[in-house]
Computed example of a mutant assay.
Amino acid sequence: MRTYFHSYHRPELGLDYYGITIIPNESLSMFYNVVTQSRAFPQSEALSDLASLIVRAEREGKDLVHFGI
Rank of each mutant, 00 (worst) to 15 (best):
M1N: 10
M1G: 05
R2M: 09
T3V: 11
Y4A: 07
Y4S: 07
F5S: 11
F5M: 08
H6V: 14
S7L: 02
Y8N: 05
H9W: 12
H9G: 04
R10K: 14
P11K: 06
P11G: 05
E12M: 15
E12R: 15
E12C: 15
L13Q: 07
L13S: 14
L13Y: 09
L13E: 10
L15Y: 14
D16L: 10
Y18L: 15
Y18C: 12
G19N: 04
G19S: 01
G19R: 03
I20K: 15
I20C: 14
I20G: 06
T21M: 12
T21V: 13
T21F: 13
I22S: 01
I22W: 00
I23Y: 11
I23F: 05
P24F: 05
N25V: 12
E26S: 07
S27V: 09
L28H: 00
M30K: 10
M30P: 01
Y32F: 08
Y32I: 07
N33Q: 09
N33Y: 08
N33W: 05
V34K: 05
V35E: 09
T36E: 10
T36H: 11
T36F: 09
T36S: 06
Q37F: 04
S38Q: 06
S38D: 04
A40H: 08
F41R: 12
F41Q: 09
P42D: 05
P42Q: 03
Q43N: 13
Q43W: 14
S44R: 12
S44F: 15
S44K: 05
S44P: 11
S44Y: 15
S44E: 08
E45M: 09
L47G: 01
L47V: 00
S48C: 13
S48Q: 12
D49A: 12
D49H: 04
D49Y: 03
L50C: 03
L50H: 00
L50T: 01
A51W: 04
S52V: 03
S52R: 01
S52M: 05
S52G: 02
L53D: 13
L53I: 09
L53E: 14
I54D: 03
I54C: 12
V55D: 10
V55Q: 06
V55E: 07
R56E: 11
R56G: 03
A57E: 02
A57L: 00
E58N: 15
E58W: 13
E58P: 08
E58F: 08
R59S: 10
R59L: 04
E60Y: 02
E60I: 01
E60T: 03
E60P: 01
E60C: 04
G61Q: 00
K62I: 08
K62L: 12
D63Q: 00
L64N: 01
L64D: 02
L64A: 02
V65K: 04
V65G: 04
V65M: 02
V65W: 03
H66G: 11
H66I: 09
H66V: 10
G68E: 06
I69T: 08
I69K: 15
